[in-house]
């Protein structure tokens, strides 16, 4: 018996394709958690990162947040919040957002900071307003790095949402956690495969977003 036979068995069992514990339902849940947490984290991290990056102020605070975020254990935080606040979507969203904000914030800050100062100087010299400099000069050039920050956050959320099944959240992690309890190894491996595929799909989505949104002038410039 190897992993592939488990995977095959899991996906060919038609019971796994229907109902509240079916693959479409679990996948949908997982994607929903991910999108919700990512949207909340981006709503916090992007404006803060753009602003600090543009003004150049707050670099120390950002560095501190980055170090602190690295030290925080995600799984620990998840369990801690659930055991103190109880089950439910909101308590689970808190750690997901807390963990997703720093990569977005830090990379956005870094991305804007690392934009070549010459075009910014030129833009200012030709009388561009500061907001316009940020959105029309700095943002397009910083976009690839900002997208990579969002991608990191998204992958992190996909991962952590998997673990969240341990504290009774739905999503693909259910198969792994339930399978471990029920000693149903087929289910465990099937769930793991689905999570890995979702993570890869996330990379693909961000790659496609980069192709669509990043100017060819910037894309070719970097390579």
């Amino acid at each position: 018996m190897n992993v592939l036979t488990f995977v095959d068995a899991f996906f060919s069992d038609s019971a796994h394709w229907h109902g509240y514990d079916g693959i479409p339902q679990r996948l949908l849940e997982h994607v929903q958690y991910t999108l919700l947490a990512l949207a909340l984290a981006a709503a916090i991290g992007l404006p803060a990162g753009l602003l600090t990056g543009h003004t150049g102020r707050g670099g120390n605070a950002i560095a501190f947040i980055a170090t602190a975020a690295r030290a925080l254990p995600s799984f620990g935080l998840l369990v801690l919040i659930v055991v103190t606040l109880g089950f439910g979507l909101l308590p689970v969203m808190i750690p997901l957002v807390v963990l997703a904000v720093p990569p977005i914030l830090v990379t956005t800050y870094e991305a804007v900071r690392s934009v070549d100062p010459a075009p910014v100087d030129a833009a200012r010299g030709m009388g561009m307003h500061e907001s316009r400099i940020l959105f029309q000069v700095e943002l397009p050039v910083a976009l690839p790095l900002i997208l990579s920050g969002l991608r990191s956050a998204a992958i992190q959320i996909v991962s952590t949402a998997t673990i969240a099944a341990y504290v009774s959240l739905g999503g693909l992690g259910r198969y792994i956690v339930d399978g471990l309890y029920q000693r149903d190894y087929e289910k465990v491996v099937g769930g793991a495969t689905l999570v890995a595929l979702l993570a890869l799909a996330t990379i693909a989505v961000f790659w496609a977003a980069g192709r669509l949104a990043v100017s060819p002038g910037v894309r070719r410039h970097r390579t």
Partner: peptide, 18 residues
């Protein structure tokens, strides 16, 4: 954060949690 980001070519906090 710059050194770490530059070092890994990817946002450092990506691995902070899984």
């Amino acid at each position: 954060p710059r050194a770490a980001a530059a070092a890994s070519q990817r946002p450092e906090a990506e691995v902070a949690a899984r």
